[in-house]
Amino acid sequence: MRPWHWMSLVLLAALSLFAEFAMPHDAEHWWSVVPGFFMLFGFVGCLVIIFFSKALGKLFLQQDEDYYDDL
């Protein structure tokens, strides 16, 4: 990831925020009125998915590759 990669991502995010404010739409759901809701949702959602799944994996899901001694 070079600096200009990050720059363009930030630019995109800024653009989406601008669009959200500049063109207000009907607040259909409670999250429609939270600015940048899906930024937070994307970042936190990703975290939740990674660590929830890994925790489940460590708890009991993950096993050695030769776990099944199939017939």
Partner: peptide
């Protein structure tokens, strides 16, 4: 909403990517 979701998913991935490395396991 799509742009925001995708951009921030990417950022989250980049920060925590080492946690996603493959492991020599199978899942029940």
């Amino acid at each position: 909403e799509t742009t925001q979701l995708l951009v921030f998913t990417f950022m989250s991935f980049w920060v925590f990517r080492r946690h996603l490395r493959g492991e020599f396991t199978i899942s029940l």
